[in-house]
Design a binder for these strands. Structure first.
Length: 927
RNA sequence: GCGGACGUGGCGGAACUGGUAGACGCGCAGGUCUCAGAAGCCUGUGGGAGCAAUCUCGUGAUGGUUCGAUUCCAUUCGUCCGCACCA
């Protein structure tokens, strides 16, 4: 056995053994419970970063733990390999995105393997390979059949100079990332998936996963879906003259918007409100500039109104960063609407704060009870009338003149100045008024969502082509399933300018209609990469299947995912889309459950110090400058005694600003995982990253701590080495102790009272540690079990017995502790654990092959001979007494009162009360 | 603006359902070994007082509930995150 711990050597050795023996390859096994451990797959950018290392170290720890617990653990990995960076690389460096992606994957696979992560590599998938995206297309066609995929016009970010569509990131700040010119919006026909069809299920099924998902993630999803219950109310509309009703059928410009015309064909504006109880306070109808009623009557508007509406529309085309609140603007159209409850005539305004996308694109303005309406009414001098009162003031308000409020009162209350509904509560009024509207045919209860259908069209090359053909005779024709995959061409030109790159590839575009066989053209848009990540973890189950995305019977065994781990930046989009996808797969019949992920752990970011110079940018209204980053290695940093940065200077003496930001190459604060592995070893790097902070927290990278992880591993290593000879010798049969060969089966079961007090204490520590670590894993804590292992290791060093003189009972206690330590170390430092275990059992087959299991907790061994009971006087700790763990409350009280220090503190005082917490504490209250 | 989370040593962080605050690690200080250094090992390490036993203050701040509060409640300050006119 090597005396010294050389990380590199044992890591190479065990990575080879794992690969050659297929140590982590799994198949269906009905004899064991399954566990599907999943981590979010990486984008193959070229290099692993520390965030990946953290994510995968956590996942690997759990996978190891579950294997040691006897589960059949599926632990796969793959590549989210479609996306913008490959295309950017193609534009900048004239490389083929496929070659660039494949070579990145090869490099990063090596990095993952050097970390010693326990993946079943046979199951690897990559989104950009035709055998995978064939099924993106398959799903698209299924959804098209199910009426879940459709095409409609929508706005995109558009750069006039480059004639190109931009993603939100590429258009950030309202400027094009390539040419720096202002970005505009443009209408484009795009493909959508009907996520809204599942809005209620996405909300309601959260009940099934509540226990396993962080509340903050569910909350964000709930907000994203944004269900609100209310009512539609129809207001009849008159022209400015107040006489003749308009006869035109009014239709919305937007598919999301419910038609404004009611069944009888007369002209109405339909509004959505969650506060129908406030309707007597409506002073106007405010509609979005894009509302159909505006178009229908535009010619009758005043010049001022026309100009104002045009301006509002134009302002909406500007790309804003959501930073400042937009000043409310609006104009009276001259149209009049009739409040169906009060028969009052109120004006119809256009307002920039009403969104055409939400509800009906029209609202009733109730300034007394809505802050936005209040602001609007205030600006334009519209009347503000209170119709909801605080309950205790209701009678008074009811008999008084209509009040003008100083600010909006948005709470529920009691109705006033509302005719028949006066003095009813908001809750009752909402129900009754909705019912009344339904009875009289001018409204109905309604639910609206903020969730929009998912636009999946991308005018890009590096994505799955949408399998649609446009035929002059047949129109929009879906490809036939047997023609899949529709493959990306090998030759293309990607410039970042103009329309989708696929449109320029004639061999791709020109095809025949799957329906009539006549020449036709292909759709040249590709799918959003979030499509790939919707179902990738089902493909791991069956990555060779060419008929189906995966076989349902494999999914029936392995899925749903038991534990999913990733960054919380995916709390909404990816995790909503994949939940949606699962529900579609259920409706197709591929799976039999509603929710794909039972437990979700969102891990915090890995961040580091950054140094930068800020160059003022006059174009930015808030004075935010452009940052030029300097790599930390090039910066001279002055720190105070506490380590706080006092000053940072660049090589040329420039004073730099500092911040703590997400690690990234461009900011120069990244840490290369390969370098960490090279210097400290994969095990130490993994232990450190788990130990340094709780998983959910942000982790500020600070290299000094990693040495502690190395020291810990070396301490364990040295201890095992020092004791190896004694630990491997067979125990005397006369002692009733088990033999060496039983070690891996956890069969060491000597009598609990054997050995010295110290030996018993060590065994207590061992079993207490087992319990603690088990609990930590169940609660997904990874920093505390590492601490517990360190404590156990410290306890071994505190056990002052030398190998030469140790009794069999001592050796046994040590052996038990060492074996438990090694096995429990495996999830955190698998190479070291494997090597030490091999040395202990005397073969090279590894923990799993030797039947290594998580050590068994034994209550009777964890129990201490005596426990220390703190004694408080008036709540202050004054003394401690040693007692048997079985001592009764009366005994504890007697011992406490007999204690010398207690006597000292209580003498001359009157004992008022004595509180005894069983096995815990005694508190004596004196006066 | 609305919503949410969180404030514990020099630092990262422990602390079961209210019951010995500061586990574990980093850092720092002293010692040991050595020709010297590295590594290792040992000791100490929240503040204040004391030679010491020990006393006292202490979990952002102020109050409250309780025999007892880092933990529960109220107010307040601060930090971070999410949403962004969703009617």
């Amino acid at each position: 056995m090597d005396e010294k711990y050389f990380a590199k050597k044992i890591e190479d050795k065990w990575q080879t053994i794992w690969r050659e023996t297929g140590a982590f390859e799994v198949e269906i096994d009905d004899a064991r419970p399954k566990f599907y451990q999943l981590e979010m797959l990486p984008y193959p950018s070229g290099n692993l970063h520390m965030g990946h290392v953290r994510n995968y170290s956590v996942g690997d720890a759990l996978a190891w733990y579950k294997r040691l617990k006897g589960f059949n653990v599926l632990h796969p990995i793959g590549w989210d390999s479609f996306g913008q960076p490959a295309e950017d690389a193609a534009i900048k460096r004239k490389v083929n995105p496929r070659d660039w992606t494949e070579s990145n994957i090869n490099h990063m696979r090596g990095q993952l393997q050097r970390l010693g992560l326990s993946y079943d590599w046979r199951r690897e998938m990559a989104a950009h390979r035709p055998e995978y995206y064939k099924f993106d297309q398959w799903f698209f066609l299924k959804m098209y059949e199910m009426d879940l995929a459709y095409k409609k016009k929508t706005q995109v970010n558009w750069c006039e100079t480059d004639q190109a569509v931009l993603s939100n990131e590429q258009a950030s700040g309202g400027l094009c990332w390539r040419c720096g010119n202002p970005v505009t919006k443009r209408d484009l026909e795009q493909w959508f998936l009907k996520t809204t069809a599942y809005a209620d299920q996405l909300l309601d099924d959260m009940a099934e996963i509540e226990a396993g998902w962080a509340e903050k993630v569910l909350k964000r999803q709930r907000d994203w879906i944004g269900r609100s219950e209310g009512a539609f109310v129809d207001f009849s509309v008159r022209t400015a003259s107040g006489s003749d009703l308009l006869n035109k059928e009014i239709e919305s410009v937007n598919d999301d918007v419910k038609p404004s015309a009611t069944a009888d064909g007369s002209d109405k504006i339909r509004v959505f409100t969650t506060r129908i109880d406030t309707i007597y306070g409506a002073n106007a109808i405010v509609v979005a500039a894009e509302h159909s009623i505006v178009d229908a009557n535009f010619e009758h508007f005043s010049d001022e109104a026309k100009a104002s509406i045009a301006k509002i529309k134009a302002d909406k085309l500007k790309v804003t960063d959501h930073e400042a609140e937009i000043e409310k603007e609006g104009v009276d159209t001259g149209l009049k609407a009739i409040n169906p409850f009060s028969q009052e005539e109120i004006p119809v305004w256009v307002g920039n704060y009403v969104m055409i996308e939400y509800g009906t694109g029209a609202v009733m303005s109730v300034p007394a009870h809505d802050e936005r309406d209040f602001e609007f009414a205030h600006k334009y001098g519209l009347p503000i009338r209170q119709v909801i009162s605080e309950p205790h003031l209701a009678h008074e308000h009811h008999t008084m003149q209509v009040l003008a409020l100083e600010q909006a009162f948005t709470e529920y209350g009691v109705l006033v100045h509302s005719d028949y509904w006066n003095l009813k509560t908001s809750d009752d009024a909402k129900k009754e008024m909705t019912h009344y509207a339904e009875m009289h045919g001018f409204g109905e209860g309604a639910t609206t969502y903020r969730l929009r259908d998912w636009g999946i069209s991308r005018q890009r090359f590096w994505g799955a082509p949408i399998p649609i053909v446009y035929c002059e005779h047949c129109g929009i024709v879906p490809e036939k399933f047997e023609n899949l995959p529709i493959e990306l061409p090998d030759k293309m030109e990607i410039t970042g300018k103009g329309e989708s790159p696929l449109a320029k590839v004639a061999e791709f575009v020109n095809t025949v209609c799957p329906n009539c066989g006549e020449p036709a053209k292909r759709e040249t848009d590709t799918m959003d990469t979030f499509v790939d990540s919707c179902w990738y973890y089902f493909r791991y189950l069956d990555n060779q299947n060419s008929e189906l995305p995966f076989a349902p019977e494999l999914a029936a065994y392995w899925t749903p995912v038991d534990q999913y781990i990733g960054g919380d930046d995916h709390a909404v989009m990816h995790l909503i889309y994949t939940r949606f996808w699962t529900k579609v797969m259920r409706d197709i019949g591929l799976v039999k459950f509603d929710e794909p992920v039972k437990r979700l752990l969102t891990q915090g970011m890995v961040v580091g110090e950054t140094f930068f110079d800020e160059i003022p940018n006059p174009d930015e209204p808030d004075g935010k400058g452009k940052r030029i980053y300097f790599p930390p290695s090039s910066v001279t940093v002055e720190r105070d005694a506490k380590g706080k940065i006092l000053a940072a200077k660049s090589v040329d003496g420039k004073t730099l600003k500092t911040a703590i930001e997400r690690m990234s190459k461009s900011k120069g604060n990244g840490v290369d995982p390969d370098e960490m592995v090279e210097i400290y070893g994969a095990d130490a790097a993994r232990i450190f990253i788990l130990f340094a902070a709780p998983v959910e927290n942000e982790l500020v990278w600070n290299e000094s701590g990693i040495e502690g992880a190395v020291r810990f591993l070396q301490r364990v290593w040295r201890f095992v080495h020092k004791w190896q000879v004694r630990l491997s010798e067979p125990f005397a049969v006369a002692d009733g102790l088990s033999r060496n060969s039983d070690v891996s089966q956890n069969k060491i079961q000597p009598p609990a009272n054997a050995g010295s007090t110290d030996a018993r204490k060590l065994r207590q520590k061992t079993h207490q540690t087992i319990k603690r670590i088990e609990e930590n894993f169940e609660f997904l804590q990874f920093n505390t079990p590492v601490a517990a292992l360190m404590e156990l290791s410290n306890a071994l060093y505190d056990f002052k017995v030398e190998p030469e003189t140790a009794s069999d009972a001592d050796v046994l206690a040590i052996r038990e502790a060492v074996e438990a330590l090694i096995l429990m170390l495996a999830p955190f430092a698998p190479h070291t654990a494997e090597e030490l275990f091999a040395q202990l059992v005397g073969n090279e087959q590894g923990i799993q092959a030797n039947g290594g299991r998580f050590p068994e907790f034994r209550e009777e061994l964890a129990k201490a001979d005596e426990i220390e009971i703190p004694v408080q006087i008036n709540g202050k700790l004054r003394s401690r007494v040693l007692a048997s763990p079985d001592a009764t409350n009366d005994e504890l009280q007697a011992m406490a009162l007999a204690d010398a220090k207690v006597v000292e503190h209580t003498s001359g005082k009157q004992i008022v009360k004595i509180i005894v917490v069983p096995k815990r504490l005694v508190n004596i209250v004196v006066k």
